[in-house]
Amino acid sequence: MAPIWSKQPLKGAFITFHIIRTLIILPWLIVRHIPKSARPFPQWSLKLSVINPLARELFVYQTETRSNGMSTVESEHKKAKERHSLTNPADAGVYSGVLSPGAVKPAPVGGLWYPAPISKESPTLDDEKVVLHFPGGAFVLAFGQEMYGQAVSTAMSKHLKASRTFFAQYRPAVDDATRFPAALQDLVTFYSYILSLGFKSQNVILSGDSAGGNLVVALLRYLETSVELPLPGAAIVWSPWVHVTPRAGADYETCRNAGSDVLIPSLLQWGADAYFPKHERTPEELAYISPLNHPFQTRVPLFIHAGAVEALYAAIEEFAKQMTEIDGNRVKLHATDFTTHDLIMSYPGLGMEQEVKNALTDASSFFGL
């Protein structure tokens, strides 16, 4: 059931209350965290100590009002003009098995090109590396805006030498037509689109953060069984949400560092409630939705990043271990000390460019780029 604050006139009242509350707590957060001893970790900067609780406040607002941010994404896509691409579903045969159209069907989805889209004047794409990135959002929030896309693109071009990045916004789960496997169908749509432009599959690097990381793992699982699509050259997942259960909020509350990380239990519960299919889930569907304890064989090198003090770290570490133990897999876990959830999306505002460089330099070496 949606919170009472998600509909007018109570939604308007909650927004007003939230703005006033934020203005009040901001100076208090700054003063409170000036002493290093008062910070969640003495190694944290003042900026990180203040931004994390502010981010939680934003997630409270979005969760209580059911504001998923998709209207903002669509507005920015329009402003981007030729850098925006609306991608239509691929041929029906591409969506098989758990992705077979039923109540949930593939649909047009959009994303942003960085620094520019492919044009007729573009030279051959034979040697171009392209990053196909999927943002997080607990399956219910949209983060396909310019500020996030630019941050990801800048990091990928600098440290992975990717000539282009496509920042792809899949459908958030808002109704029965966008539950699982809608978002995963969208990833297949985007991947098919990238290949249709002429990029070689071995030059495509899949990337995803948080719930987007979950979806990249699911896409790898799917591609290993697909006869229609070739495998990409590599995959990076940032703080992937690998343990998604019907009790997501309660599960998160038991995690170490849950109180100091940016995520909140109610957001994850909203995401799980909205994303899980309404029917009784099959074992195959559960493996796609929650990859922890469902490892699989993949021929794609998989680089996993996690913040060493993020609440999801233990689950991510265990997932990496399980994947590593599968014969033939090439998997590497890179943990950044004293870093919280989703480094790739938050690093510009936190001044953590060096940490992103270290992670991507490690990934580049691991991939042999």
Rank of each mutant, 00 (worst) to 15 (best):
L112P: 00
C255A: 14
E253N: 13
V242S: 08
T339M: 07
S201V: 01
I118E: 04
A211Y: 14
V188A: 12
A13E: 06
K200Y: 02
R247N: 13
I15W: 15
W5T: 06
E82G: 03
F134V: 01
A80W: 15
A2P: 06
G144W: 04
P230E: 05
S210G: 12
V140G: 05
A359Y: 01
L343V: 07
T72V: 12
I25M: 15
I344N: 09
R330V: 01
E285N: 03
L26V: 14
L369M: 12
L206C: 01
G93P: 00
S290R: 00
P232A: 07
D342R: 10
L333C: 07
E76F: 14
Q202N: 04
G97T: 06
V204H: 11
Y148H: 14
I205W: 10
Q322K: 12
D176G: 09
P135N: 13
D127S: 09
V331Y: 11
E318K: 08
L206Y: 03
E355H: 06
L141R: 09
A320T: 01
E74Y: 11
A92P: 00
K79M: 10
P89N: 04
L197R: 14
G259R: 13
A107Q: 07
R299Q: 08
G259E: 13
R281V: 07
A151Q: 05
R171P: 01
D342C: 08
R32D: 02
T65N: 04
A107C: 01
G93V: 12
E228F: 15
I264Y: 11
A359I: 04
P101D: 09
V356P: 11
R247T: 06
F319G: 01
G351P: 00
I51D: 01
L268V: 05
A182N: 05
A234T: 06
G149M: 09
E318A: 05
D176N: 14
V227P: 01
A155K: 12
Q202V: 01
I25P: 10
N214C: 07
F139C: 03
K200L: 05
L86D: 02
D175Q: 12
P40F: 13
V60L: 13
R66N: 05
I24K: 11
S49P: 02
E76I: 08
F143Q: 13
I344V: 13
S346M: 04
T189A: 04
V109N: 08
L312M: 14
A183L: 03
I236Y: 15
P35E: 10
A177F: 14
N257K: 02
I20K: 09
L223I: 01
T63E: 10
G198H: 03
A211W: 15
G368Y: 09
A107N: 02
S260D: 13
L215Q: 05
P106C: 07
R179G: 02
T361E: 15
